[in-house]
Design a protein around this nucleic acid. Structure first.
Lengths: 143, 143
DNA sequence: AGATATTCGTATGCATGCAAACGTTAATTA
DNA sequence: TAATTAACGTTTGCATGCATACGAATATCT
């Protein structure tokens, strides 16, 4: 390999730069489809709480969605403000609050599911179906 | 396709969810390698200003890095605070300020280049070299 | 049991990132 | 030329996201 190739550095070919732009694009597509201001992270959080192990503590939920405690606090507060999840004291552990979805939250998940499916499709639209599967597989391997 | 397949929705297989985690992972790797608190976006901005068309307006620079005007304002302010770029009035357009890198900024780019190369490698480390190339190509196509 | 670790939720500060609104200036159009 | 439109930079408000620190409660270890 020659030295000139070593010096070569193009922003458009760096994973980090491209990941940032791809993420921005997805969030933009998400916002287009979801009218009521629910964010991608808020949906993920709500979905995890509903479809995973059910009621759990705030920090546990955050971990399942890939958020640290500080971020989780804000997301959960907003979901509670919207009346999509609820909080009650854990009788066995005075530090914890158990979180669970409300009826309104569960209804919103069902209403939103077709749209989030469409969002995934739209995000992958520039790729052929085969490329899309490849891409998602590589993304999973990367995580 | 059966109805049960249509109902199927797994968070770990959604592009948006995976993109968010992949981006988080990259930013974490970036922070590990760069000691002085320079962020990924700040490096991209500095690099663009130095290696692209040279001195340009704030909004133009932001566009080249994929930031809106509000975000650009903050990033540029921080780069100026660190003494990495400088701002001077554009004599031909009273609205504009022309931005350019300082000597300190250019020196920092050269010092940082080997490290950002390593960051890209580390981010792609879970993939084979062939997969890594595929992944970057698909990311580019997606953007 | 008592000392130490860890976990829980919380709070603050900082950095992206977008929407929206704003005054100023330049470019376009009628 | 006059009116309109567009671009420039700025500010505010809100949402993620991380580091750090904190008191309270639980777990673990000696």
């Amino acid at each position: 390999m020659t030295e000139s190739q070593e010096q070569h550095y193009v922003l458009e070919e760096q994973v980090g730069y491209l990941l940032r732009l791809a993420n921005q694009r997805h969030l933009s597509i998400f916002a287009e489809h979801i009218v009521d201001g629910l964010t991608s992270v808020q949906f993920s959080t709500l979905f995890r709480l509903r479809k995973e192990a059910g009621p759990m503590s705030q920090n546990a939920l955050g971990r399942l969605v890939g958020m640290d405690a500080a971020t989780t606090k804000g997301v959960v507060s907003r979901l509670i403000s919207r009346g999509l999840i609820q909080m009650e004291k854990d009788p066995t552990d005075k530090r914890r609050y158990m979180l669970s979805t409300t009826q309104k939250g569960r209804a919103l998940i069902e209403d939103t599911l077709p749209r989030v499916r469409q969002i995934s499709e739209d995000t992958l639209a520039p790729l052929t179906p085969h490329e899309a599967k490849q891409f998602v597989a590589l993304l999973k391997k990367l995580t």
